[in-house]
Amino acid sequence: MLFEQVLQQIINGLMLGSIYISVAVAFTLAIGILNFLNFTIPALYMLAGMVGWSLSHYGLPFGLSGPIHWGLALVIGIICAILASLLVERFTYRYFKMKHGDATEHAIPLVSSLGFLLIFEYLILIAHGSDTRGFSTPFTNLDWKTAGFIISIPQLASLILSILIVAALSFLLSRTKVGRALRAIAENPDAATMMGIDVDRIVPIVFILIGFLCGISASIFAINYHEVSPYMGDHVGTKAIAAMVIGGLGSVWGAIAGGLIVGLSETLSIYFFGASSAQITVWSLLLILVVFKPTGLFGHNAIGKGKF
């Protein structure tokens, strides 16, 4: 019986991990390619969810329309996250690149991204207050009961979707022209410029991907857990950072493994030691890794050691 319960927890943990995957990939892209710890990611995630909720609940602003279909609302939410991400690119990465040569030398983009985190989070709080909002979709009780286990079908679909997106991304990075340009920038931005790569046109692609991944992940969360809140990004954001570190900074596949490991250790820790133990488990794991094996499971040695 205990064995089966633990197995059920493992299933739940993997499902929870699927939420973290996309966000962890977003973090790892920013670090791996731009050496930028992008703290706006939790805010972009929250923005997509809250915009989606607001559209499906109230409709377009200024009474332009009635409530919008939840699917369309989420798509618009994702687009908003992408636009917000591009705004961040404009005022953090690109600006400092122009001014200081190498933006990654300073903590400036990091500090700016903390500023944007506050801006987005409190804009939403000002607009909608701090309540958790219900997000209704038709998928309420689609559980697949098999061999005594309960697997939520939307969750399973989400896990598969996350992995497919990351696989596509991995393909993009390794096989396409854009991917090669991105990897060249990751190696050495100055050399990439000399090789004729238009860094100013390629870098926004990273931010578009970041916005897209955050938006997708927020939509998956809203569909599976039927709620959104202005604080939804904080929880997922910190867990995704942990997932990124565990997988190794800059490693896309590592982020998948990391996301699942974090989800697993979270649910198992809650199951065995109670609700508030997850925090200690996940962060101790991260701390030990950062100190003793900073490359994580699949990471690259040189990433993230640059001086602030």
Partner: peptide
């Protein structure tokens, strides 16, 4: 022992662990 981003993450983790221990 950690540098750069890793130091930021390590110190962040310590604060989370301290809060977690107090909560428990």
């Amino acid at each position: 022992r950690t540098k750069g981003v890793y130091m930021v993450l390590a110190t962040f983790a310590i604060a989370e662990i301290v809060a977690g221990i107090i909560l428990n």
